[in-house]
Nucleic acid binder design. Structure first.
Length: 305
DNA sequence: GTCCAGGTCGCGC
DNA sequence: GCGCGACATGGA
């Protein structure tokens, strides 16, 4: 018998839920999905107690008077701690506590298109755990988006714990779930290509306690040092580390990849191919906010097309 | 069949 | 520090 509970979060305005949910592809990666029509982010979540719950996250009110509503479907009763965990996870996913006012000030100085960003955009969706985002980021390297979705799906379908009685609803795998099978079994069960050993080794190192990933979620380390910590992870290079810095909430590094190079070349160098240094210099004046500036620069191009 | 994707690793210089 | 080939997998 399933029960439902309702929780709410009141973010500081302006808060654009739709933009948060869908201005990156992250909402398309299992076990998160996005119902464009209803404006609902669905998330199957594995709580610390081991309970699997379904979260339907939506937005009531307006950008200037926002309320986030979380409808949780679960078995039995939710304890107070479980409710707090759900609230904290959604809070983290939607970056409710991030203060973007400095970024908005820079956007207002630009004017034009950038004014649109200041109405609550810029909170790019992320996963509740850094483990999940590291795995997903590894799955974005040297592959097209369709391949990323396929690989993440396979991981969830094979190693994610199911919602009671519904094998179609699975949470993201825990590191332990992956590390508890043999390397060979893991390689045979999901088609991750050469990324297999990266994901397996990551799960192992977290399970053994050798690597404290979640500790990096809220660290005070300066960005360059945090980046070094991320680069130690096999499979994480310069692009992936910058992507993870963005996911952690540091925007002072640009993730230089083929999409970045192509976009900057087209928009700022008349199709000529600049060096990476020259390309990055385009966003230098955004200081701590380079990544978001690039993101909405390319987003503008995309939405105008 | 060939090429390559929102790269990274390990090697040799 | 920098250039280069190898790397799994599937889609174009």
């Amino acid at each position: 018998m399933n029960n439902r509970s309702r929780l709410t979060i009141i973010p500081t305005p302006p808060f654009d839920f739709r933009s948060t949910a869908y201005s990156s592809g992250w909402a398309e990666l299992a076990p998160t999905s996005w119902d464009e029509e209803r404006g609902v982010v669905r998330r199957v979540e594995h709580l610390g107690t081991g309970k699997i719950v379904i979260l339907d996250i939506s937005h009531k009110g307006t950008i200037e008077d926002p309320t986030i509503e979380i409808i949780t479907t679960h078995q039995g009763k939710l304890t107070r701690d479980e409710q707090s965990e759900i609230q904290a996870s959604v809070n983290y996913m939607l970056r409710v506590d991030e203060d973007l006012s400095e970024f908005y000030t820079l956007c207002r100085q630009r004017g034009g298109y950038w004014l649109k960003v200041t109405s609550g955009k810029g909170r790019l969706l992320r996963s509740p755990s850094l483990f999940e985002d590291v795995v997903k980021t590894i799955c974005t390297t040297n592959i097209q988006w369709g391949g990323t979705k396929r690989m993440v799906n396979e991981l969830v379908n094979v190693y994610g714990k199911t919602f009671p009685d519904d094998p179609s609803l699975r949470a993201f795998p825990t590191p332990t779930a992956i590390a508890s099978v043999s390397p060979q079994n893991f390689a045979d069960s999901v088609r991750l290509g050469y990324r297999t050993e990266y994901v397996y080794q990551l799960a192992q190192r977290i399970t053994s306690g050798e690597l404290d990933l979640e500790g990096l979620q809220n660290t005070d380390l300066p960005t360059p040092e945090l980046k070094k910590e991320l680069l130690v992870i096999k499979g994480i290079g310069n692009y992936a580390a910058a992507t993870l810095l963005m996911l952690i909430g540091r925007y002072d590094e640009l993730a230089v990849d083929t999409a970045f190079r192509q976009f900057v070349s087209k928009k700022y160098f008349a199709g000529e191919r600049p060096t990476d240094a020259e390309a990055q210099a385009i966003y230098a004046e955004w200081g701590e906010w380079k990544y978001l500036a690039y993101w909405f620069d390319i987003w503008q191009e995309f939405t105008n097309a």
